[in-house]
Structures are given as structure tokens and as C-alpha cells.
Design a protein around this nucleic acid. Sequence first.
DNA 1: TCGTCGTCCGTAATCGTTTACAGTTTCCTC
DNA 2: GAGGAAACTGTAAACGATTACGGACGACGA
Lengths: 372, 372
Amino acid sequence: MARSQTPQMATIRDVARLAKCSTATVSRFFNQKYVSPEAEQRIRTAIDALAYSPNVAARNLKLKRSMILGMIIPDVTEPFFPAVVKGVEDAARAHQFSLMLFNTQEDEEREAACVDILLAHQCDGLLLIKAPRGPRHERYRAKLAMLPAPVVYLDRAPDLAADAVLVDNVTGARAGVEHLIRLGHRDIAIIMMGRDVPTHLDRLDGYRRALAEYGIEARPDFVHETEPTMADSYSVTLQLLASANPPTAIFATNARITLGVMAAINSRSLRCPEDISVLGHDGFDWQTVFRPRLTIVEQPASLMGTRAAELLVQRISGDLNGGARRVVLNPELVVRESCGVYREHGAMTRLSSTGAPSSVRPGYSPAVTKEL
Amino acid sequence: MARSQTPQMATIRDVARLAKCSTATVSRFFNQKYVSPEAEQRIRTAIDALAYSPNVAARNLKLKRSMILGMIIPDVTEPFFPAVVKGVEDAARAHQFSLMLFNTQEDEEREAACVDILLAHQCDGLLLIKAPRGPRHERYRAKLAMLPAPVVYLDRAPDLAADAVLVDNVTGARAGVEHLIRLGHRDIAIIMMGRDVPTHLDRLDGYRRALAEYGIEARPDFVHETEPTMADSYSVTLQLLASANPPTAIFATNARITLGVMAAINSRSLRCPEDISVLGHDGFDWQTVFRPRLTIVEQPASLMGTRAAELLVQRISGDLNGGARRVVLNPELVVRESCGVYREHGAMTRLSSTGAPSSVRPGYSPAVTKEL
DNA sequence: TCGTCGTCCGTAATCGTTTACAGTTTCCTC
DNA sequence: GAGGAAACTGTAAACGATTACGGACGACGA
């Protein structure tokens, strides 16, 4: 295929010729080294006249860096990720880095291919959201381990030797489920992603701990797995609701799952929270406006991105010595109205129907950075 | 700042040495030229042994291209954009291009800076969502006009000479407002972004046309401008509701604005659609589940991205001769329940409270590509 | 037998930067 | 006035790929 005819870009040699100096001087002009005011002036006008902009490919070749941060996310369309991306982008730009973004649609093959592309682009560091676990991903994991560029994992970490920014999913889930228990619920179901997703396993752990703390038996038939799609969690919920002993509350462990749960509840003409309570995960603008206003465990998505990017930049610049560093951020329980009070022999009632949602911060310790 | 000590990447020379051939042969191996089977085998094993991956910076320098598509969006966090990004990413990858994404937070300065960065990275083409208009952006527009890389505009186009993928905002808004009129509404307000945003001006145009077609007077006090934030549209709506002659229906021209409108309606304890109808813009998953289920004008976001990326790739490869090309896609009116029937002297009633939302496609002509 | 074509391979120039090295000038200090 | 530091500049060698050019070899047809 023929390439379109674009006007030749000016090079540093053109600038040098026009400014009557050597290329070295022009280069020094850009790199804040000794350049006389007169030369500087001539160079400035030459640059303007030629609309010169340095060729980053050449610079990168020489400098062996690209000022590119690679980021691979499972799905831009899942609203949690854009929030993270925003945080990453802000921090990256603050340090002169650009962001190269890949979207894998949760596809492992595609993800490995993205890593290759990123490496070929000499990207200086990688931000990975999906840390592969389990035997199926052995090859891919081995590859990641010997990458020439530093990697920071977000949300999920493959092992203790990796830099990572995580949230304390156990504590978040525990606080959320405790909230349900204090509202009187005993029959609480959890609908979560599959067994090999670490974050969701942690949420399951938090769920179990809360039950245990209150001496409530953890019923295995209340633990359900689903694909992270609305359709699948919809049918899983339908099943659960049709069972002999349906729960009075459901904890849905991410945004898509929550949507499916609510859809199922709607389709059975149940009211939330009057007939059944729902605890969701991840926070979005619309939740403050549309009904039922969801009570959720909220992750600091944008902050996660920022911290991860900053950690990565430090790694790249070598400012960080020592072993793996991991930043653990705290989720927040945001109480709105989708969880109602449960009374033994009566219907549930709304917890509050008044305006502003209240935000409850259980007694968390502040964000923790652990040196391992 | 010191750079971290990463293991030296293997070069094409290392591969050549190990495979006992010249760098030219290795390069030919990658570019499907004449290479003997024996040499090919040796090169293959050498590549594996060294975990060699070609240095794209060097290749780009030589080939004067980067296989990078640059994309600048106002706000990743606004859910309409990720959907577009997804479409772009898919199409880009299908053609071997990678995506470099920038987020400007609607900041003009930042946007110009992003264009510079992208150019410095020798990106092969640009996807721009915000086409600058008005005298304030004269300099920036001039700069865009003389870019060495092709540009495709998305959603908003600066002039007729530019490639663009647009949606027919006039028709979409017209259909939506017509829907309101047929429901019996006469006092319909519009809350939109400022006068210099072309897409919103088109939506205003559609709104006016619908009113005109039905012989309804367009009241100037029903046209309101707002920043695209929830907070601002909230207070604008509050003002509107407090006026002497409040509307019975509101058309909100994007997702954030819709959120603010709903928040204001809630805070006044009005019910939607019983007390007031709301027509929103742009479609998202949660709208099918949470109440009131919004009736909206929906743009084919992902498709817009795909078409734009494909157009850009064609431009880059020079397959496209002739003048500016523009693709106009059709929005769709999705009827749910936030718009109710208005009866002269009574309350409004729900249009339908039954389950599945119905999707109405007015008699649109199919997507149109015009050669200018 | 010769010429030609197709396959295969290596040498070396090139892309646009940065920077080590070397050199000049100016200015300050003793 | 000698010596040295600081400011400024140019030459040329990298960085790691691609590819024009030229050479070698075998097959094939005339």
C-alpha cells in the first residue's frame, strides 16, 4: 500500500543550517546546556520558521528510552477502568510520560500480544491490571517475569516479588457485609467472579469473616460464581431467587454483576430494598441519582491509577531501591438506600429515604505502604 | 535521575552473530524476503535464545512511520468516550496500529500540548474528538491545518475540508423531541452545553425543528446552557424548575447534564415521569436497570470509533484519493420510561411500566457517506 | 556454451538524534 | 602576565534497524 505524501518534516540539521550553527548546539539548546543568547535566538527563529519538532524515534534510539508507559486493561467499557486510566494519565503526564493503552477484552492471547507490541515500542514501564494466575498462564507469567521493563500491577498482583497497588478487598467486603448484618440480615448471598480472580476471592474472604464474626453460618449455597457480564449474573441471580431458601440480601462483587443482579430483581418484580437488599461494588456518578441508590463498597479508582503510575515512574528512574513495594489503599463503604433493615417476621423497610447519601468510613487505618 | 539497570536488550546484530549470518539476512527474515530454510532455522533459534524483539524506534526512524495512532479525548471518565475508544482500538489493532491516548480534561492548552507530543512521537495519524471553533482557537486550528499527519475528526468537525465521522445530531434530537410532543408535551425545555459546541448546537436545531413542525412556539426561556458537569446542570435545572412557568419535559443533551437534571428533580421531590418528563442523551447499561429508566437519544459510540479509525488508516495508507470524506451515522431513539404522557389538566402518567424497553427506529435513511 | 533469471547473502550507507572529545574564547585570580 | 575555570562551539561516532547495490550460484532455455 502506498503511503500518502506528507510534507517532509524538518530535521535538526535543517535548523542548524538556518541558525548557522552545528546540530550539537541545537541539541544543547533543547537540553538546557550552554548556548549563547545570540545562538539561542537564531535557533528559536529557525525552529519557528521550520515548524521543527524533534524526532522522538531518533532520540529514543539514542537514549534507549521512549517516555512511553504501557497500560493494558481488560475492558475500557467497564467504568471502573477509565477512572483508573485517568489517574494514570495525569500522573504520567506530570512526569513527561505518554500513555499507550491496550484493551484486551479479557483475552489472554491478546494480552500477551499487547505486551510484545509494548516491548517493541521500547516502552519504559508497564501497568498491568490483570495479573495472571493458575497453571493455564504459566508461560505468560514466565514471560512477564523476565521483562526488560519494570511492571507495576494494579488491582491484582501475581506474587509478592512484584510492585503493586492494591486495595484492601477483604476489609472492604467485611465492612459492607457487616453493614448488612447490623441491618438484621442473616441470609446473605454473594455473587462473584470465578475462583481464580484474586480480588474476588478476597471479597469472598471478607464476606466470610464478617459472617464468622457474628457467628452466622456460611451457607455454601449462598456463594455463586458468574462471568462478569450482566447477562450471566442476571441468570445466576434468577436461579438464586428461585431457590427454596432465598437470601434476604445479595452482595454483588463488581459493577457489571450488580447490574445483572438488579435486572433479575426487577424481572421478578421484587422491590429493593423493601423485598431484598443489594450491596454493590464500585462507585459511579449515576448511583447518587437513580433508584434504588446503591449502597456500595467503593474503590479509590483514580487514586489507584495515580499511585501506580508514580510507583512505576520511580522504578523507571531508579529512585527506588530495595525489593518489591506495594501500596494498599482502603476502600470505602458508601451507604445509600439499597440495603434495608430486616425484621424477623416482617418486611424490610427503607433505611433512610431522606436526601443526601451518607458516607461511612469504618475505623480503617490510613493507606499503607509496606516494604517487603 | 539515574535509570534503573535493566538487562541489555538483544539487537539484530546479536541475532546475526548467533545465527552466523549478516544483519541484512535477519532483517529479511522479518520482512518475508528470500532467506534459505537453513538460515531461517538458525535465525529462529537465535531469536528464541536471545528473546530478541526488534527495536521499533530504530525501525521507525528508518521507515519514517510509527504505527501509532494518536487519540485525544476530553474526558475518559465520561462514559461516551470509552465506548468510542473501544471501537478505535479494535479497528486500529486489526490494522497493526497501536493507540496512544490522551486525556485533556477539556483543556485547550493541554490539547495543543498533546498534539505536539503525538507529533514528536511521529504518530501516523490523529483522531480528534474536539474540533476547535471560534476565534479563541484560531492559532490551534491553524496548527492542525498544517499537520504532517492526517487527522480524522470524531463527533465534531472544524470545517468541510476535514475527514470526519459524525452523527446526525439534528435528526436524533428532532426524533426525541417529537416523541415528547406526541406524548402531549408543549412546554419542553432544553439544557445544553455552550453556544460554541457544534454537536449541541445541532441538537438545539433538532429541538427547534420538532417544535416548529408541530407549530409550537419556541420559548427562549426554555433554552438553557450549562457546563458539562453534574453540579452545573443541577443548579441550572433548579433555576428552571423554580421559574414562573416551568416546563413539563426537559431534554438534556448529554449524559452528565442528564445526571444533573435528575438530581435536581430528585431534590425537589418531583417524580419522573409522573411530574416531569426527561429525555436524555447517550446510552449506558445501567439505564436499563435503574429507575427511572431513561428514554434517550443514543449515539452508536463504538461504531463511530471503528469507522473513524478505518477512515484514518485508509488515509495513512494512501488508499483514499479525493477530497474530504465524512461518514454520518444515525442516532437512535430508545424509548423507556422517563417520558410520560401529558394530559392537559391532570398529572402525567407512565407511558409503560412493563418490563422490556422498546427501541424505536424512526424512518431514518441508513448511514451516509458523502464525498465532498 | 552462453545468457538470463531467480534465489540467497553480505557490505555499507542511511534515518535524526545525543554527546564524548577537543578546541576556542573570555574572564577572573593571584 | 600566567594559569585556570567557565562558557560556548564543532566534529564525528554512536543508537538499531532497513535496503540499495553488487556478487555468487544454480537452473533453464536457446
